[in-house]
Design a protein around this nucleic acid. Structure first.
Length: 241
RNA sequence: UAUAUUGGCCUC
């Protein structure tokens, strides 16, 4: 079973679904029973090939579904913007007593962020934290990015706080988003403070944060501050640009 | 076996 499934997985990743199904048929003929993993692989294969309908059909025919089956379908729906369907599955899981994990929330949150349904995304982050699940930085980043671009830096900072409290470590992307957001709101001191905080917690600055902050400071005619940032960066071995 | 258009400038 495992070797057949591996071959099916390979074809699915190449987008060769017909071949994958051929192996499945061969498998059944030889008397091997496909298991849940085999079906989950196919579900994902159909979704990734852009055929969510077909995945849905298979999902409906499957006798049992585990967390991976649900998460795979949820991701498939989210990727094509069908967040209502994804939510429907979330509810179905809930009824069955299944608990979503980081993968499930990640799929849902990026789905909502793509649709700019930031409120829903924030709600899910809260729900996730409520369950004691520690999210990944990128999950927060996409939400923080959306909120910052709308100019709601106060809310962004609140979420940032919750993020850290929950044990999720911000990365360079997180800081870039927030630093740039503050710059756009002309809150230069906050931006500078975040930059220092970033260094303090051992988060490495890169040329993106560097140029974002320095160019914003320059535009604001804060040349002294810009210089001081440049000096810090040079001391860290950055090439000037 | 499932989650990563998450960042500045430039270009478009």
């Amino acid at each position: 079973v495992a070797s057949y499934t591996t071959v099916i997985l390979g074809y699915c990743r190449e987008g060769m679904l017909d071949e994958a199904l051929g192996i499945l048929a061969e498998m059944v003929e030889s008397g091997e029973e496909p298991n849940l993993v085999t079906f989950n692989v196919l579900l994902d294969g159909f979704c990734k090939a852009g055929d969510v309908k077909r995945a849905e059909g298979l999902f409906g025919k499957m006798e049992d579904h585990d967390l991976v089956s649900y998460t795979t379908m949820i991701d498939g729906y989210c990727k094509v913007g069908q967040t209502e369907e994804a939510i429907r599955l979330m509810n179905e899981m809930h009824v069955k007593g299944m608990v979503p994990n980081v993968y499930t929330y990640s799929a849902m949150i990026s789905g909502f962020c793509q649709k700019n349904s930031l409120g829903e995304a924030v709600r899910l982050l809260e729900e996730m934290r409520g369950r004691g699940i520690v999210g990944k930085a990128f999950m927060y980043n996409s939400v923080l990015d959306g909120i910052s671009k709308v100019g709601d830096l106060d809310q962004a900072m609140q979420i940032f706080e919750k993020m850290r409290e929950s044990g999720c470590k911000p990365d360079t992307f997180t800081y870039t988003i927030l630093i740039y957001g503050h710059c756009m709101k002309a809150r230069m001191n906050e931006a500078i403070a975040l930059f220092h905080e970033m260094l303090q917690i051992g988060c490495k600055p890169d040329n993106v944060v560097a140029s974002a902050l320095v160019s914003c400071l320059s535009k604001a005619s804060m040349h002294k501050e810009a210089k001081s940032i440049i000096h810090i960066l040079l001391a860290k071995g950055f090439s000037p640009d």
